[in-house]
Write a protein that binds this DNA or RNA. Sequence first.
DNA 1: AAGCTGACGGACG
DNA 2: GCGTCCGCCAGCT
Length: 107
Amino acid sequence: MGVDEELHEKVRQAIQAIPHGRVATYGDIADLTRAPSPRLIGKILSEDGHDLPWHRVLRANGTPAPHLAREQLERLRAEGVLTEGEKVDLRAYRWADVVPEPERGLF
DNA sequence: AAGCTGACGGACG
DNA sequence: GCGTCCGCCAGCT
């Protein structure tokens, strides 16, 4: 298996591991999986993210990607994540901030 | 082969 | 807080 496919899998696992009611940024996932760039996370999600909790992944400022905003915010609201306008308060819901490193699992 | 295109992010004004 | 610009990476044209 090529390293790229392995990374692809790690990224999927990391996203799968984001708890209900919590969120992460593309950058968080990139760091966690040591992906070369956050851009890659979006790429992977776009082609192979349908079966993942993709709605829990936001941009660095807490807003969703524009074309997804509607459904993403709706899904987040459904699991108790409150938003101010289009923006989620990362300080309150960010997985990486709330969950201690050891409990987050290694990727 | 140069250029374009993103589910991005940080720096700057 | 917001718009711009630029760096970034992989895949397509």
